[in-house]
């Protein structure tokens, strides 16, 4: 294997990992911090993508359009938390089924509003040459952004007063309420952030794919596997699981075939869960002991 080919494969590996981070971070956050499995996460991504292409088609530049969709999704997420989720905390099946209903609802609404096809937007930036290969600058940007997203989320949750409150509200809600934390507001903000991350993810993916009402279904499977394999710790779990699964998928795809990559991903996920029922987070906890 030549050097340029090796680098390109490494980049494609990182690119797969970064895509997983981008599609799963919001889901992981809602699950890890609030115990909410958001079945409508794929549709949140889809809405983010729709907001972005609508904004771009209206003449707004892409980065701003992506930010707008993140903010819009954050707002929508907070509204959804207020109206739906807050009634259901503690009953995982209820939040799952409610968000499932939400996902059906969103698909229906989007198809009625936007129709079956929408005008896509081009992938921005050009390519860089590397030996006999070319790399899309946009995927390099995505790799960097995935890192930035993880770092920022870490800083927000580990270093800010809000982060401390959010973690307290997540692990011991009653105690947190007792010491004066407004748990319901903290939860609303946390879900807002998770939704904003989904909107951001959808916006970032929009230039890479065609956007249709079923857009989310293409990503939701991977996002779920990442979160399940990662376990309850939203950042540690999601990032290590993205590394593991993205690495395995891209590795096997490059060496054997994409279908083998998909099967390897499912197989590894099953094995991880068989031996670490609480996901990779469990492994970290074990290692610490």
């Amino acid at each position: 294997m030549k050097v340029d080919q090796f680098i390109v494969i490494m980049v494609s590996l990182l690119s797969s990992v970064s895509l997983l981070v981008i599609v799963s971070l919001g889901l992981a956050l809602a699950f890890g911090m609030m115990g909410v499995i958001n079945m409508a996460h794929g549709e949140f991504l889809m809405l983010g993508a729709y907001f972005t292409i609508t904004a771009v088609n209206a003449g707004i530049v892409l980065p701003v359009a992506i930010l707008i969709s993140a903010i819009a999704m954050g707002g929508l997420g907070m509204v959804i938390e207020r109206i739906v989720l807050r009634q259901l905390y503690g009953r995982i099946w209820a939040t799952m089924l409610a968000t499932w209903g939400l996902s059906l609802l969103i698909v229906g609404v989007v198809q009625l509003v936007f129709g079956t096809s929408s005008n896509g937007i081009p992938t921005p930036l050009s390519t860089i040459h590397l030996g006999g290969y070319m790399l899309s600058q946009y995927s390099l940007v995505l790799i960097a952004l995935a890192g930035v997203l993880i770092a920022t989320t870490y800083l927000v949750f580990a270093r800010t007063p809000y982060g401390t409150m959010a973690r307290a509200a997540a692990s011991l809600p009653e105690m947190a309420a007792a010491v004066g934390i407004n748990v319901s507001r903290v939860n609303m903000i946390t879900f807002g952030i998770a939704s904003a991350l989904a909107g951001l993810g959808g916006g970032l993916l929009a230039p890479l794919s065609g956007v249709s009402p079923t857009f989310g279904q293409g990503y939701i499977g991977d996002a779920f596997m990442t979160v399940v394999v990662g376990g309850a710790s939203p950042l540690l779990g999601a990032s290590t699981a993205s590394l593991l699964l993205g690495g395995i998928y891209a590795g096997v795809s490059n060496i054997v075939s994409p279908v083998a990559g998909t099967l390897a991903l499912l197989l590894v996920s099953m094995l991880v869960l068989r031996f670490l029922p609480t996901g990779l987070t469990g492994l970290w906890r074990k290692a610490r002991q």
Binding site: V8, S12, S15, S16, Y133, S139, S253, N254, P258, T262
Partner: peptide, 12 residues
């Protein structure tokens, strides 16, 4: 696969 969205390896 019909649900594939990441075509990195094919591009390589």
């Amino acid at each position: 696969s019909l649900d594939q969205t990441d075509f990195g390896s094919s591009i390589n």
